[in-house]
């Protein structure tokens, strides 16, 4: 086991899958010689050559569209979109084709492709570099939407995404890229897509988060334990879509209280669907209205004001107390 950043862990997933399977092709802007602007693909072109690591022209629609053709042929392209804020050019290809090819051809063509993109705030970036728009993809039938919360699960989920028979949008939090290190085993580790995980057990309240919001949520859970004596159960969603609410339902039926935390804006965000599911599945177990701690319904502010937009430990703790005191 080696201690790795999320950048290194994702790099390892790509390298190991490329070693095992010559159908896996990495493509995107600056992914070759430059190793990607975040260095996620560093060293791949040296090991696998230009035939497997494609520096493409600067055109996100064609990157995704070409990947659709490659997947139709039977390859497993892994596209890097430099920032998720530039992925909207590829939305058309993914919505109109990648998500639909299996059904349109009644199973003849499967779209085993991954589109990786850094998302979220917290890195003092320019406009278009900090959005958290996972709901667009999650709202699209036929796509899968995955967001890891740390190095180890990023590696294990990316392996699953690459092997998945359907198209997977894989958002990587820029704020987490080098934020901390985790032990990541050299041997194979795969996490199934579509399964949330309990990362902290508790009986009093359920906190549901994913991606970069998991760490402040865990901190908030510690704070609630220390200051209020509340045992918070923290669930890491890992997959936004297809959303499996089984674990969420079990937890909320036990605790009777829940807070959903995400960086994405509030209305029609993933939290809206999670709350709706819990109302359907656990209404009679609820002791209080479910709270949401989210970005405001704004274009994410530039970085001088960004800290007030992104959910903080303080906001999560306050929302949790509100459900307890309701």
């Amino acid at each position: 086991m080696a201690k790795m950043t999320m950048v290194q862990a994702i790099n390892m997933a790509l390298r190991q899958e490329m070693e095992k399977d010559d159908r896996v092709i990495v493509m995107g802007e600056d992914v070759g010689l430059d190793g990607g602007v975040f260095r996620v693909t560093e060293g791949l072109i040296e090991q696998f050559g230009e035939q497997r690591v494609l520096d493409t022209p600067l055109a996100e629609s064609a990157i995704a569209g070409m990947a659709v053709g490659m997947a139709a042929y039977g390859l497993r392209p892994v596209c890097e979109i430099q920032f998720s804020g530039f992925a909207y050019h590829s939305f058309h290809q993914l919505e109109s084709h990648a998500a639909r090819f299996r059904r349109r051809s009644q199973g003849r063509f499967q779209m085993s492709l991954v589109l990786r993109a850094p998302y979220g705030g917290g890195v003092r970036a320019l406009e278009h570099h900090s959005e958290s728009r996972e709901a667009y993809w999650a709202h699209t039938p036929g796509l899968k939407m995955v967001i890891p919360s740390g190095p180890r699960n990023a590696r294990a989920l990316l392996v699953a995404a690459i092997r998945d028979p359907d198209p997977v949008i894989f958002y990587e939090s820029k704020a987490l890229y080098r934020a901390f290190r985790e032990e990541v085993p050299e041997e194979e580790e795969v996490l199934p897509i579509g399964r949330p995980r309990i990362v902290r057990a508790g009986d009093d309240i359920t906190l549901i988060a994913y991606g970069a919001m998991l760490r402040p949520t865990l901190e908030a859970a510690e704070e609630l334990q220390k200051r209020d004596g509340l045992g918070a159960e923290v669930i890491d969603l890992l997959t936004i879509s297809p959303l499996d609410d089984t674990l969420l339902t079990e937890s909320v039926r036990k605790t009777g209280r829940a807070v959903v935390i995400h960086e994405a804006s509030r209305s029609f965000g993933p939290g809206a669907e999670i709350v709706a599911r819990l109302v359907e599945s656990a209404f009679y177990y609820l002791e209080a209205p479910i709270e949401r701690v989210t970005g405001y319904d704004l274009i994410i502010p530039l970085f001088s004001q960004e800290q007030n937009y992104i959910p903080s430990v303080r906001r999560i703790v306050r929302a949790a107390r509100k459900t307890v005191n309701a």
Binding site: S61, A62, G65, M66, S96
Partner: peptide
């Protein structure tokens, strides 16, 4: 026009193979 990049991807794959 959305099918045009698909043809490019298929052709890339045919060449790769």
């Amino acid at each position: 026009a959305s099918q045009i990049p698909h043809a490019v991807g298929l052709a890339w794959a045919a060449k790769y193979r």
